[in-house]
Design a protein around this nucleic acid. Structure first.
Lengths: 72, 72
DNA sequence: CGCACTATACTTAGTAC
DNA sequence: TGTACTAAGTATAGTGC
């Protein structure tokens, strides 16, 4: 229940780290989605992890490619 | 003071939209930073906006390039 | 315009099953 | 391990300067 302050450091415990990753990844993607929607801008995010075979991307693989092509 | 619930829709008012963009962009980048630090993973974010001449990137232009090269 | 403030909405760490 | 719960910590909308 969030009884501790978040210490900004690598979480050593494997299962705890994975659980936190899953939760925060979800929250982060939501934030990106909100920022994009609220402000009508282009953005993309790519998240690699040893837990997923494919990197997590937002808004979509194609959307990421389009933003990337503009970036390069 | 956040007296309204956030309605997930494009903010029509220009100045309000810009103000929200600036605040949320900051918060979003912080979240990406935390996720990366806490879980020891690779991630990157690219945010375009009409307010900045350069797209906002995380963790850095070089870091983004490295993540991208893995993505492609 | 941009920063500081702050009440309130939102996110999330730890837990139980 | 995954999901649900909820307290407590964090982010942020609206405001004044």
């Amino acid at each position: 229940m969030t009884r501790k302050k978040v210490k900004l450091a690598f979480i050593v415990n494997d299962s705890a780290r994975k659980a936190t990753f899953k939760k925060r990844k979800k929250g982060l993607l939501k934030k990106v989605d909100e920022l994009s929607t609220l402000c009508g801008i282009d953005a993309c995010a790519i998240i690699y992890s040893p837990y997923d075979p494919q990197p997590e991307v937002w808004p979509s693989p194609l959307g990421v490619q389009q933003v990337l092509s503009k970036f390069r």
